[in-house]
Computed example of a mutant assay.
Amino acid sequence: MSSTYVEETAVKLAVVEALYRFAAGIDLRDKDLLASALTEDAVSDFRPAAAKAGFEYPVLEGRDNIVTALSNALSQLDTTHSVSNPRITVDGDTAHLEALVEAQHVPRNDRSRHYLMKNRYNVELVRRGEIWLIQRNTVDNVWLTGDPSVLSGV
C-alpha cells in the first residue's frame, strides 16, 4: 500500500469526521461539539428534505444560528443520526462530501411515536489547519416513514 493512498485515506476520514461531529453534536445535545463541525459563516439548507416532509424550514446561516436553531427545534426529541456511504472529493483545502444520513426522531414524552428519514447530505467543507469544517450543507430526502408531526413537537 503506497504512502499516497494512506495519506489520501487519512484526509478523507478527516473530512467525514466533520459530518460525524455535526451528527453527534445533535444527538448528544452537545452544542460545543455541533459548533466544532461548522465554519463561522456556515449555511445549512434543510429545505429540500423539509418540503418532502410537508413543512417549511428556513435556510440557516452562521454557526451560532445553526447551533441554536437545531438545538431548539430538536429539544423535545431524542435523535439518532447514522452516516453511511460517504463519497469524498478533495481539492487542496476544500472538499465535497456526499453521504446518506438516517435520522430517527422520537419524542421524549411519547416513545410510541417516531419519525425516520433517510436523507442525502451534500456538504462543502474547508480545511482550517488540521481540521475540516462544514461550510455548506444541503439536505434532501430519499424516503421517510412514521409520524411527521413528531418534528413539530405535536
Rank of each mutant, 00 (worst) to 15 (best):
Phe46Val: 09
Leu97Ser: 02
Thr9Leu: 07
Ala18Glu: 05
Val101Met: 11
Ala42His: 01
Ile66Trp: 02
Leu34Gly: 01
Tyr121Pro: 01
Thr9Ala: 09
Asn141Ser: 15
Ile66Glu: 05
Leu125Thr: 06
Asp41Thr: 10
Val150Leu: 08
Phe22Gln: 01
Asp45Val: 03
Asp140Met: 04
Thr79Arg: 02
Glu8Pro: 05
Val15Asn: 01
Leu74Val: 09
Val139Arg: 02
Trp143Pro: 00
Ser112Leu: 10
Leu133Ala: 12
Ser112Asn: 14
Ala23Ile: 05
Gly146Ser: 08
Ala23Glu: 04
Ile88Gln: 07
His81Glu: 03
Leu34Pro: 01
Lys118Ser: 12
Thr39Ser: 12
Gln76Ala: 12
Thr9His: 06
Leu116Lys: 07
Arg136Gly: 00
Val6Asn: 06
Leu28Cys: 10
Asn119Val: 08
Leu151Thr: 07
Leu125Phe: 06
Met1Trp: 03
Asp110Leu: 13
Glu61His: 04
Ile66His: 03
Val150Ser: 13
Ile134Arg: 00
Lys118Pro: 07
Phe55Val: 06
Asp30His: 09
Asp30Ala: 08
Asp45Leu: 07
Ala50Trp: 00
Arg87Ile: 15
Arg21Asn: 12
Val67Pro: 08
Asn109Lys: 15
Met117His: 03
Leu34Asp: 04
Val139Cys: 06
Leu97Tyr: 03
Ser152His: 11
Gly62Met: 06
Leu125Tyr: 01
Tyr57His: 11
Pro107Arg: 07
Lys12Arg: 11
Lys31Ile: 04
Phe46Lys: 04
Asp64His: 00
Asn65Thr: 15
Val83Gln: 07
Gly129Pro: 00
Arg29Trp: 15
Gln76Glu: 10
Thr39Pro: 03
Ser2Lys: 04
Val123Gln: 06
Met117Gln: 12
Ala95Lys: 09
Asp140Leu: 02
Ala18Cys: 07
Arg29Asp: 15
Tyr5Val: 09
Gly92His: 14
Ile88Met: 11
Tyr20Leu: 08
Arg127Met: 11
Gly54Trp: 09
Leu19Thr: 11
Asn85Val: 09
Arg127Tyr: 15
Met1Lys: 07
Glu40Ser: 13
Ser75Asn: 15
Arg113Ile: 12
